[in-house]
Amino acid sequence: MSRKVLLIEDEPNITEAIRFLLTREGWQVETHAEGTDAVQVILAARPDLVILDVMLPGKSGMDVLRDLREHDEMKVLPVLMLTARGQSRDREMAEQAGVSRFMTKPFSNTEVLTAVRDLHAQASQS
């Protein structure tokens, strides 16, 4: 069974690193680097999991997540959020917006992999 992850991140080197890690885990990795049309891309791609950066060109990750959760079929989609700003206020905002897991950059590869595995396992069970 093919697992699909959608990575929305504007920093090419970080995108490449995560793609490398998750591909080796057996994930099908799709990427996107814009905030503006991110919701449409997610709706169209129908991934099993989304990794979302906060600082995106055009539209912030927070707004993308908030809009995404408006869609009924997207309420339970696991979303892992990454931020480089590292302020506690961001974590609160993300939780209110309906994030599944929140991580601060720089992260260790193991952390990301563990988070992705956990989120996927929870989603599969429910």
Binding site: I14, A17, A84, R85, G86, Q87, P106, F107, S108
Partner: peptide
């Protein structure tokens, strides 16, 4: 913070 963390993220990820 953002400008520092972003390159550090790449460095850490690829070095790992």
């Amino acid at each position: 913070s953002h400008e520092l963390r972003t390159p550090m993220t790449s460095i850490r990820a690829f070095s790992e």
